[in-house]
Amino acid sequence: MGRSNPTMSAAGLRIEGLSFSYGPRQALSDVSFAVERGRFCALLGPNGAGKSTLFALLTRLITTPCGLIHVAGHDLRQVPRSALASMGVVFQQPTLDMDLSVRRNLSYFAALHGLSARQAGSRIDAALERLSIADRAGERVRDLNGGHRRRTEIARALIPAPDVLLLDEPTVGLDAAARASITAHVHDLCDDGGLSVLWATHLVDEVRPEDQLVVLHQGRVLANDTAGTVAGQRPLAERFLALTAAA
């Protein structure tokens, strides 16, 4: 599938002046921020902050005439297919077929992206290896625990070799060990592969001080800097509560 030439030199994700409303209710209001290549950006916001709406817009499940979204330099409105081809997505809701094996889930997804079995085979192996679940490839998804299911979904999102990886609260419902492991895996993906990651969460302990942090509250960006800078001298949790309470 041909990708158009990137219109921007800086790869990664760029959002400018994005607004969206459900009828009279404004869900997002003039949201702007960028995630550079190889950066891990945590999108932190309480429930109802507009994170899921932002993800629906980023994945083109819904569209808005207000604002711009560039994925690896591709304008999502002008060249949606190139932008979608540069993006890997892990949705908040599980989207695996429980009765298929891990590998079959991944190969079905690869086919939806137009990859032949031959092209997909090596990519699937590499993705499973990267997420340390190669030994589970033949198991039915139903037989995996929550953490491994999530890893399977992340491995699946890597198959089209995206430049940008979007994860919408990927650790919901997981125990502390699985959460820590998945958070570490995705940080590694940024460090080794130059992948830009947007990680939506409402849990401050998933954010490292050196990560980029965008705080979203009531559809507006309240802060956008490294997590260490946003937190200042105080613990991030405390600072986050103060920010969202003041707004």
Binding site: M1, R81, T95, G114
Partner: peptide
């Protein structure tokens, strides 16, 4: 959610 997979394919 699995319909989302279909709808976010670049095809």
């Amino acid at each position: 959610g699995s319909m989302r997979l279909l709808l976010t394919s670049p095809l």
